[in-house]
Design a protein around this nucleic acid. Structure first.
Length: 779
DNA sequence: GAGCACTGC
């Protein structure tokens, strides 16, 4: 919290205190009238009518959305088996499941629909069933349990084309999730409800999960939770998903790129030749939390894909959710100054609305959040003594875990209202408990790829109607709530219905490679719910050709097949393959760099204060290299791996994100394993820790030249005026301040990311020589 | 001199 002294006079300029009965912000007076005095009963709202909140752990939306929340919850859930699958013996394993939890399950809205769901899914001729279930309906945990004992869900011994002996088809239900935490916690929950253990190799387990770096699928598992990406990878090995009787696609409304690809592949399986599955049909269950499933219905139901027999039959089931009512109010006129309007609204709520009831405000990003926090703290110091205190807590993805934890904890002192200032992280990814009031700025920052420029932008844009509804819903999780929209009703009406699906916002390079690796020759004809522009796909095809993933005739090369198997972007896959060639021979070094580059957010934590930044710079001296960011990342990994006393302390000192660094080490292990299998290097390195030897300049040059094989198009030359001009497109780019190359002038640079925010920025920058670009381009 | 959110056999 900012020291009040430092900002006191600034606060006084904007705010004058009149008497204890009102507060004036920016010229507007807010009366304390109607305020619940501290002497009155605190728990006024609790007696209100409305559905009874179900157990927090019985809907996955509440239990699984946040790693942090999960971490907190895990300490308070004695009933759950631990990761190794140790299990409470008192729980039933006779197939009827955990009796104690059965009562909770029966109370879920979806419970009454189980016969209906079974009947529709069983019906011959129905291939696709769409289940619309609002938040809290229990669909994610219950639907697979309703279905796995059905006769059609058995494993079938069948004759498969091109095989002498009989093969097996079906027996398992796959259920996909967009996020790892959701997949793992749902699996834990469902295995507990079923009363069977979770864990690799367990013979008696019914439920399992499979996510990157973590596969816990018991032998004989019938229900398997996985991330969408994992199922896509399985599709590369098993194009007809022969191990599954049904695939449940959950949270399709989020429209991730992976889910759109999955939908396309499923449509092809449904409308294609069943002989590859020995005549056993695949049931597809699509689940959405939003009612707008018209496009989904249309997609699976309409026109057979080219060269196939028929369109699928689609049935839609709608299930009520459990949500308290939320009153929505709008601004009468468009607001001129969003920050100002936000502040007024927050204090208006604070003085007019009863406690308890925290406020959740949705803002654009870190910058706005920090500014709002400062202002709230300034005003808070001038509140009358008989008014409850107010504290502002920021919540955004880049915050440390400890800082995020504050947003989930109740205010420490009594009679204090907490205001959580959040990005759209609080819209779907995490649930902040205790919220009764939502303030919605109506905007969020969106990343959008511009295929023709080969760059992306990150700009604040109006949110969609469904986002606005989702934000408002956050006020009704624990009781009736209120949502204050800082925009007019007309502005709401003018918002687009839903967010642009990721496939229309992202580079489709990886998507096109996935299709090619799955044998889709004509990618323009691949069935997609929303097809990207033809130009975007053509750019991706050209790019893949440049990377060596496609032949001149558009068919995939062996290198392309390998790249598709790597858990990396196509350019990074190309870099890895280049590194394995005799010319460069630096696979292990490139893996070290790539591991750090791809471990989620930046491993280097950004320090705001100037003094802090200087201190960190001092401690990071041993990591930083003048060759640029790639070699700096590489050195960081090597020093971290060489560290044999205290890695956590080592990270703390250098302000390195410990979680991301651990993840980087994980990725390094996975990539080493995969490259070993692909025979990309000949000798397994000795185990860590090994003594550190700085990378020689020659080796550094080789590593950077490997990266040029993937990123030759992302290069810029120094212009006479000192700016950098991109080789491809001739745009002026500035080196991002997060780069070790920031403020330096080199003959030419290569950058791995190109983002437009308030400037055209090159990120992850390395110094190169102009002749290297020609070399990489002219192969 | 600055970063919405996720994710991969």
């Amino acid at each position: 919290m900012a020291a009040p002294n430092a900002t006191e006079h600034a606060a006084k300029r904007r705010k004058t205190r009149q008497d204890s009965g009102s507060i004036t912000i920016g010229g507007k007076t807010i009366s304390f009238a109607g305020y619940l005095a501290p002497s009155q009963p605190k728990k006024q709202i609790e007696a209100s009518s409305g559905p009874k909140p179900i157990l927090p752990s019985s809907t996955h939306e509440q239990q699984s959305n946040s790693t942090l929340k999960q971490a907190i919850d895990q300490t308070t859930k004695p009933g759950l088996p631990d990761k190794k699958g140790t299990y409470n013996k008192s729980q039933s394993t006779n197939g009827t499941g955990n009796q104690a939890l059965l009562k909770t399950r029966r109370e879920l809205p979806i419970w009454q629909h189980q016969d209906e769901i079974r009947t529709v899914v069983k019906r011959i001729g129905t291939d696709v069933i769409v289940i619309v279930g609002e938040t809290g309906s229990g669909k994610s945990t219950q639907v697979p349990q309703f279905l796995y004992q059905e006769p059609w869900c058995k494993r079938h011994k069948v004759k498969l084309p091109g095989r002498q002996e009989d093969g097996y088809v079906g027996g398992m239900i796959a259920i996909t999730q967009p996020r790892r935490v959701a997949a793992t916690t749902l699996a834990h929950r469902v295995s507990t409800e079923a009363g069977t253990p979770l864990g690799k190799g367990r013979p008696d387990g019914l439920v399992g999960y499979s996510v990157r770096f973590d596969h816990q699928v018991p032998r004989g598992a019938r229900i398997k939770f996985l991330t969408e990406g994992t199922l896509l990878q399985e599709l590369l090995r098993d194009p007809y998903l022969k191990q599954y009787s049904a695939v449940v696609i959950d949270e399709i409304h989020e429209r991730s790129l992976d889910v759109d690809l999955l939908a396309g592949f499923l449509k092809q399986i449904l409308s294609g030749d069943k002989t590859e599955r020995g005549g056993i049909p695949l049931k597809v269950i699509i689940m959405s939390a939003t009612a707008e499933v018209g496009v989904i219905q249309e997609f699976f139901g309409s026109g057979a894909t080219p060269g196939t027999e028929k369109a699928s039959n689609v049935e839609v089931l709608r299930i009520k959710g459990r949500q308290f009512p939320v009153t929505i109010s709008y601004e009468p006129r468009p607001v001129a100054d969003l920050q100002d309007a936000l502040l007024k609204k927050i204090f208006k709520i604070h003085v007019e609305e009863p406690l308890p009831g925290d406020i959740l405000a949705f803002l654009n990003g870190q910058e706005d959040i920090e500014a709002a926090q400062r202002l709230i703290e300034e005003y808070a110091t001038t509140l009358a003594s008989n008014v409850p205190k107010i504290i502002a807590v920021p919540l955004y993805g880049q915050l440390s875990i400890e800082a995020q934890r504050l947003a989930f904890q109740p205010a420490r002192s009594p009679m204090t209202r907490k205001v959580v200032l959040a990005t759209n992280i609080a819209e779907t990814s995490v649930t902040v408990p205790g919220v009764r009031y939502v303030v919605d700025s109506g905007k969020s920052k969106v990343k959008q790829y511009r295929p023709r420029l080969g760059m992306e932008s990150l700009l604040a844009k109006p949110i969609s109607k469904s986002s606005a509804v989702q934000r408002a819903g956050r006020a009704g999780r624990e009781g009736p709530g209120k949502c204050f929209r800082l925009y007019t009703e007309e502005a709401f009406d003018a918002m687009q219905g839903s967010d642009l699906p990721e496939i229309l916002r992202n580079d489709v390079l990886g998507a096109v490679l996935t299709m090619k690796a799955r044998g889709i020759h004509d990618v323009l004809a691949f069935p997609l719910i929303d097809a990207p522009e033809t130009a975007a796909i053509e750019m991706a095809l050209l790019h893949l050709h440049f990377l060596g993933a496609l032949n001149d005739d558009g068919t995939i090369t062996p290198a392309g097949e390998t790249m598709a198997r790597f858990p990396l972007s196509a350019p990074l896959g190309a870099v890895l393959l280049a590194a394995s060639g005799p010319e460069f021979d630096c696979v292990l070094e490139v893996i070290d760099a790539i591991s750090c580059l791809t471990s989620g957010d930046d491993i280097f934590i950004h320090v705001q204060s100037e003094e802090g930044a200087e201190e960190v710079e001092e401690h990071r001296k041993d990591l930083q290299r003048r060759e640029g960011d790639i070699i700096t990342y590489l050195t960081t990994m090597q020093l971290y791996a060489a560290e044999n006393s205290d890695r956590i302390e080592w990270c703390k000192k250098r302000k390195i994100n410990i979680r991301n660094m651990k993840q980087a080490l994980n990725i390094r292990r996975q990539l080493r394993g995969m490259c070993w299998k692909e025979k990309l290097f000949s000798e397994m390195p000795p185990p860590d820790p090994q003594p550190f030897t700085p990378l020689s300049p020659d080796k550094a040059e080789a590593v950077i030249k490997c990266f040029l094989r993937g990123f030759a198009m992302r290069t810029a030359m120094l212009a006479p005026d000192g700016s950098f001009v991109t080789v491809n497109g001739k745009h002026v780019v500035a080196i991002h301040p997060s780069s070790v190359m920031h403020g330096q002038k080199k003959e030419a640079i290569m950058f791995l990311e190109h983002v437009y925010t308030n400037k055209n920025y090159a990120k992850k920058v390395s110094a190169i020589q102009a002749t290297w670009i020609a070399e990489a381009l002219g192969r």
